[in-house]
Design a protein around this nucleic acid. Structure first.
Lengths: 197, 197
DNA sequence: GACATTCTGGATCAATCAGTCCAGAACGCA
DNA sequence: TGCGTTCTGGACTGATTGATCCAGAATGTC
């Protein structure tokens, strides 16, 4: 019961996430973050602890949004088509960011491995949750559990690869083609009665 | 005609490469590098220019070794089997490094994008050369040019994804399974008379 | 309207960064 | 053996890093 926060915490977190997303954890300096968040040093430390704590919240926010994309796609169409749409949406037109920024989780896993294993593992865990989402989707499509597990791992492999491609200077069409190839190849590997659902 | 270099330049470069490979460019401090290379600050700047120049040479060294693995595999067995062996060798048992370190080129593309675009592009270019190696291999296997191009891009996609998986805490067997899945799925997409060569 | 509480901006901190510089040691040649 | 050249170790620099601290402003409650 005193002076309330002068800024919107969610909005500030969202802007911080975009800085980490684009530049990575180490290259995002505190002045960079403060400028983007439009708050002062004291406010950041009071609201988020420190730079590392801020990053952890950004990872969670990014993961939540990614899972949301998948959930919405699943609610609107058959499972396999939902997966294809998820790749199109998140890789070609990521909400609130640029395709060239790749995936914050993938970027962080790589950048922080052997530098800050806690942060790297945090990102890897969230990536695992997305993979679990793939798996649930494949089970809905009628895949037996063992195959759903295997193909979900394969889809995550492709997802990771696409996010790397995104950060190379490759033209957008090249990534579109890679997605098309993936699902063509994937369809050939799934029993027809499943693939057609 | 005076005092010669007191250290082995190639050996020092090799040790520097391993530091960058494990920790990334930004997290590798000059003291880290100097300790690993067992030389002094002055020697490093005299021999390699600066940290950035040293990194550039390390990228070239890593790319050369990667291409060498592929070339040796191609010389010893049929093209498709060579590709499979390349993945086994470079992902499961990389020469001079640890599997958990991933791929220096992939790591650098992601870490330096939007931080030092020159270095990121340098790594991306070398990655493109590896992809060209895949493509030549597929043509040798009898793929028509258009398909060789498409599948080489797909193999690079998988390669990139595997290198991300390598830096997650995933067990070795998971990566082995992903390679197996990839080639099983790939075989199904290639005309049988080609796949059987 | 006054008080207690909490947030804010900016100065400041020690630590670390990459890079420079110089004196002295070590070598090849004569 | 002595000279000229080049390399080496370590001190040093200015800049930047993430983080702390404090005085002052702003707010809700009584």
């Amino acid at each position: 019961m005193a002076r309330p926060l002068e800024f919107d915490r969610d909005a500030a977190l969202d802007r911080a996430m975009r800085v980490f997303w684009r530049q990575g954890y180490q290259a995002a300096s505190l002045p960079d973050l403060l400028t983007a968040m439009a708050i002062s040093r004291s406010s950041l430390y009071a609201a988020f602890g420190d730079k590392r704590g801020l990053m952890a919240e950004c990872l969670d926010l990014f993961a939540a949004r990614t899972l949301q994309i998948l959930a919405r796609a699943r609610a609107a169409q058959p499972p396999l088509e939902a997966l294809r749409q998820f790749f199109d949406r998140s890789v070609v037109d990521p909400p609130g960011g640029q395709p060239e920024w790749g995936c914050l989780l993938v970027n962080t896993v790589l950048e922080m491995a052997d530098v800050d294993d806690g942060l790297s593992a945090h990102a890897a865990t969230r990536l695992g949750e997305v993979q679990a989402g793939f798996e649930a989707c494949l089970r809905d499509a009628g895949c037996p559990p063992a195959q759903a597990d295997e193909l979900a791992a394969f889809l995550m492999l492709v997802n990771q690869g696409l996010r790397v491609s995104s950060r190379r200077a490759q033209p957008l069409q090249a990534r579109r083609d890679q997605i098309a190839t993936t699902f063509r190849v994937l369809s050939a590997a799934i029993p027809t009665e499943v693939a057609s659902t």
